[in-house]
Write a protein that binds this DNA or RNA. Sequence first.
DNA 1: ATAAAATCGGGGCGCTCGTTCCGCTTAGGA
DNA 2: TCCTAAGCGGAACGAGCGCCCCGATTTTAT
Lengths: 205, 205
Amino acid sequence: MTEKPRPLRADAARNRARVLQVAYETFAEEGAGVPIDEIARRAGVGAGTVYRHFPTKESLFQAIVADRLRQIVEWTRAQAAADPGEGLYAFLFQMAEQGATDLGLTEAFAGSGFDLAAALPDAEKEFTEMMTEILAQAQRAGTVRPDLDAADIKTLVVGLQAMRRFRGDSDLMRRVYPVIRAGLAVPDSPEPSTRGSGTERLGSA
Amino acid sequence: MTEKPRPLRADAARNRARVLQVAYETFAEEGAGVPIDEIARRAGVGAGTVYRHFPTKESLFQAIVADRLRQIVEWTRAQAAADPGEGLYAFLFQMAEQGATDLGLTEAFAGSGFDLAAALPDAEKEFTEMMTEILAQAQRAGTVRPDLDAADIKTLVVGLQAMRRFRGDSDLMRRVYPVIRAGLAVPDSPEPSTRGSGTERLGSA
DNA sequence: ATAAAATCGGGGCGCTCGTTCCGCTTAGGA
DNA sequence: TCCTAAGCGGAACGAGCGCCCCGATTTTAT
């Protein structure tokens, strides 16, 4: 591992930064399916330039998702430090709002053709640890029911992002948040056992 | 509109039925993105045969989604007739389970590149009416909070399907259902006002 | 200023997929 | 049985996209 990180030429560094920024915005708007040519066009460079800095489209996408995850972890930790009981709720609703603005991130989470844990094991691990922590904090503070774990929270994030994306309208979304919040609160009476569990079959074709 | 529905030749009718059945299963497994060639192969016919019966891939997909919607409406009405207070819950959890088995339907609902209301206005209308009815029934029975409308229910369906798809494991899903159910119940104490509303911004790239 | 090295851009290759076309096959009435 | 038109399959076309290549251009050390 004799690192010889020859310093990037000035124009190359500029282009690389520009591509990253533009890819960031473009993946957010259009999702992971957007053609590289489109990103190149918006960045004012050729497709070849994109590929010199990032060997594949996938690697560019990963770089951006990793950065996003880091931001979210940092932001959430700050929120939870300020108010441990509310940290988890702040996180959940922030994630939902990301669903409205960042299609790429939503796809990375929902895992349609993108395995987060396999592609970015470190970032995924840190993210999961953060969720585990703020969930435990909230449960200790008594604001969240104790029978949930980090995997349940991740599931809720996927659901919230899907809902938020479905409803471009953020006003209407305010009607659904309270439902989720009420559901996450510590129940003060024994739960009615869940009926049916949805395993009854529909007739087929 | 001089209908002259010349009766299909026997082999043609057989092929048409086979294509429909196979397409049904294939869209469910692979989603709307599956190539027509794959459906043709599974049905044991040529691609040309598929296109003779359905002018475009889109029209084939629509035919199947319309059928699915009809089944669901029928099934749900029966459930609600048997137990008005539980009808909505049966519907919601059934929809979630569909998320696990029918990718095509999930995509049709979530509306990624498929506008249900525009493509199948009649089926969509009947579906929405059904939801409105069973929601009203449940609210009258006192099992669901009164401050929700059919659009909110549709949003929840999208979220539940995304979650169910994310979690291939149905056991774990049993942990999330109770949360949703608790959230939908009539609150017995005034709601804490939703904090923050998630509009704080994350730093960008 | 000058030349070597790094970088650029965009045309092109290979592949996938929706849709069409057409020569061959087969159902089914006379 | 025979004829005709409905039906069939799969080769082929065109569009979109990831990725590569190479002659032209720009940076930077001397």
